[in-house]
């Protein structure tokens, strides 16, 4: 598979204060993969995504999306932030949040219309949240909020999806529902990059993986590089995960 390079990261270094939290990252993500980013807490996984998406300015390095700078390729990229990054007590409804996914293509000032609303409703349907469209977002469970964020990204109808821990705090049913949507995206030729914590499910869910701990430890097909050696290098301790299938 993997011919085109969807995302290319060169020598990326990012720091919040003076201590770099990402150091000299080189990364090539081929088109059409479903990739997990794994690493311990504080490894810089969220930071990597934020730097790729231009939310954080890097100290050095560059990012290209299909060979062009990210700024020119925004329309191709969708983002699912970590759920805890927003205040869910904000006075708005589930549908309203999902509609935000259409704001990028609308641009400044223009209001969403029937067409945008229809797209949002379809996305809600896809994540099984249509019945909750008028629900105030604080009255949704954690898993439901996660689905809303996913729906908002789906509305963007992008080619590349970055998701920060979409499985955080969701139950088994929701996890299966979400992974099925991700697999569908891959089937449609999209590239999906997911920060993931559950190492047990990596071989089952993903075909590509990146090990990250401040530096990039390894990146490649799960079947080739998802092994105890890389896990130990990433997590520091002698990691044994039973990945025999």
């Amino acid at each position: 598979m993997a011919q085109n390079i969807a995302v290319k990261v060169d020598d990326l270094t990012v720091a919040y204060n003076y201590k770099p939290v990402l150091w000299d990252i080189d990364l090539e993500i081929p088109e059409g993969v479903l990739m997990a980013i794994v690493g311990p807490n504080g490894a810089g996984k969220s930071t990597l995504i934020k730097a790729i998406l231009g939310i954080l300015p890097p100290i050095a390095g560059s990012v290209t999306i299909y060979g062009k700078p990210y700024k020119k390729q925004r329309a191709l990229v969708a983002y699912v932030p970590q759920k805890g990054s927003v205040d869910w007590d904000f006075p708005t409804t589930a549908l309203d949040v999902v509609m935000m996914g259409t704001y990028g293509s609308l641009g400044w000032i223009k209001r969403p219309r029937q067409k945008e609303k229809k797209a949002a409703l379809e996305a809600l349907e896809k994540v099984g949240m249509l019945a909750f469209k008028n629900r105030q977002i604080s009255q949704l469970s954690g898993g439901q909020q996660q689905r809303i964020f996913l729906a908002r990204a789906l509305v963007q109808n992008a080619s590349i999806y970055f998701m920060d821990e979409p499985f955080q705090g969701v139950d088994a049913t929701t996890e299966i529902a979400i992974i099925n949507i991700l697999k569908e995206l891959r089937k449609a030729g999209k590239t999906v990059i997911v920060v993931h914590h559950d190492l047990q499910t990596v071989p089952e869910y993903f075909d590509w993986v990146t090990f990250l701990n401040v530096k990039k430890i390894a990146t490649g097909p799960v079947k080739d590089i998802f092994n105890d050696d890389n896990l130990t290098k990433t997590y520091g301790i002698n990691y044994k995960v039973s990945i025999q299938e």
Binding site: L53, G54, I55, K71, Y79, S85, F90, T92, M100, R152
Partner: peptide, 22 residues
């Protein structure tokens, strides 16, 4: 009134607003 949707999105999720190019 003009920037209603931009204001609302910025208030709720500034990082996401940035990724959309605003």
């Amino acid at each position: 009134l003009l920037f209603w949707k931009e204001f609302k999105m910025l208030l709720f999720d500034p990082d996401y607003t940035k990724t959309l190019g605003f």
